[in-house]
Write a protein that binds this DNA or RNA. Structure first.
Lengths: 244, 244
DNA sequence: CGAAACGTTGACTTGTTTCAATAACTGTGG
DNA sequence: CCACAGTTATTGAAACAAGTCAACGTTTCG
């Protein structure tokens, strides 16, 4: 049990921070419950306070907010290895929801374990702070997408970021990756309509940059995409670095 | 010295978390240096690692990112009482810059003090985690602005949020507040052009909702604005609440 | 087989940008 | 005290990106 968890956390925290099994035991409070959720299920609901955070071990989820007009904005997609729901623990009420978009397997971590661990295990408190910083760095990058990039560039940047994150956990290569997102999810994430997402994907295909078909993103011309999107993925890695 | 700092931190952390002067001393590592910056000066520069974080005691600053095409996206504006530059301390390299937009006075805090304090003072580590969570909540709200709201609603929501935050530190009333932002800064923040910002402000004025003139935001019809923008500022407050 | 979900395409509308010009205001040096 | 440059605000007209509405094709699954 600890071994599995250890591999996921270690992957996130990078080579410089090593948490002993004792530290992990502290985090878990002696129990690592695996939990399962089916497609469409809410893992965290906006407005509720949560008693658990999660480490995603398989499947994809998204964090999102609903708008008064019925619209939805997806904040981030999360892939295996990601730490979920910390905001629902740290804030009195979660300010956004998290939903499974494929069948999902996670490890649940009790709030009290987290609080105790932060207080008692210095390397862990640093590690969790860094996760929070990295999380914000990703949201900030997403914000740039919406504020200052046109739809085609936005899509290219988004799919490159996703590929980079998946590669970090062994779920992608430079050539491409499996991706369970449909055009409605992409639209909600990029602040576009599904119709326009379709047109944008066609454009990228016709320009021989990438092909997104049958749940697979094929990065046909990765260099061209990187150039088009001015993509620099260093913000994804630096959070795992040492403090000095 | 400690008294001044204490009032600012306490205001941020809310009534439920009390940091003793001993805790604050730990945070400061025995020295609270006041520092000053003039308009346009960068306080944190993207790509650099920082040795200090700051508490803003007077003036306004903004965090932003520059784009390859010369454009700029402002991530947040910060007002007195705000904690700045934590990302430049926690990450190996800051992933966005921070700049003074008025003359600014801050208190500098050494990295090592923060690290030590997190390790040694449990309530402080919780407090800083909450600040991080609140910070992300604000960025998330901003993301909604850009992704799913039209320009007029975006502006209304933005100015209401700003008013709410300023009121929390005694710099605004329900009627309005002093605001040193020009239309170029607003444009960079909202992902619009300055020209369109001008038109949007005119529209809000002609609808008798608010008047933004001569550095003062007059919330002429606050209820109308709240309705227009579906504004709910609870995400600004909840981060300061107790854990249970 | 039929229904539901997802993808694709076209025609039209709308919000926002771009370009351009002018006005008001601020601070500076002669 | 005025002339001047630099910054900010304002407005109009044309161009463009993305949204909306609508229809149809394709796949999946019970």
């Amino acid at each position: 049990m600890l071994t599995e968890l250890s591999s996921h956390i270690s992957r996130k925290l990078g080579p410089e921070i090593h948490l002993s099994d004792v530290d992990l035991g502290m985090l878990l409070g002696g129990q690592a419950k695996p939990v399962f959720r089916s497609i469409g299920t809410d893992i965290v609901s906006e407005g509720e306070h949560n008693s658990h955070a999660f480490i995603l071990t398989s499947g994809w989820v998204c964090s999102y907010k609903l708008l008064k007009d019925g619209g939805r904005q997806i904040i981030e997609f999360h892939v295996p290895g990601d730490f979920l729901g910390l905001h629902g623990v740290l804030l009195k009420n979660a300010n956004y929801s998290i939903q499974a978009i494929t069948p999902v397997r996670m490890i649940a971590i009790q709030v009290q374990s987290i609080v105790d661990a932060i207080a008692r295990v210095p390397p862990l408190s640093e590690a969790i702070l860094r996760l929070a910083a990295r999380e914000e760095a990703m949201v900030v990058e997403h914000l740039l997408d919406l504020g200052r990039r046109c739809a085609v560039v936005r899509m290219a940047h988004f799919l490159l970021e996703l590929g980079t994150r998946l590669k970090m956990v062994g779920l992608a290569t430079d050539q491409g990756y499996e991706c369970p997102l449909n055009q409605y999810l992409l639209a909600d994430s990029l602040g576009l309509t599904a119709v326009h997402v379709n047109r944008v994907l066609r454009q990228l295909r016709e320009r021989n940059l990438l092909i997104f078909r049958d749940g697979y993103v094929h990065l046909y011309n990765r260099d061209g995409l990187v150039k088009l999107a001015s993509f620099d993925g260093s913000y994804l890695e630096q959070a795992d670095a040492v403090l000095h």
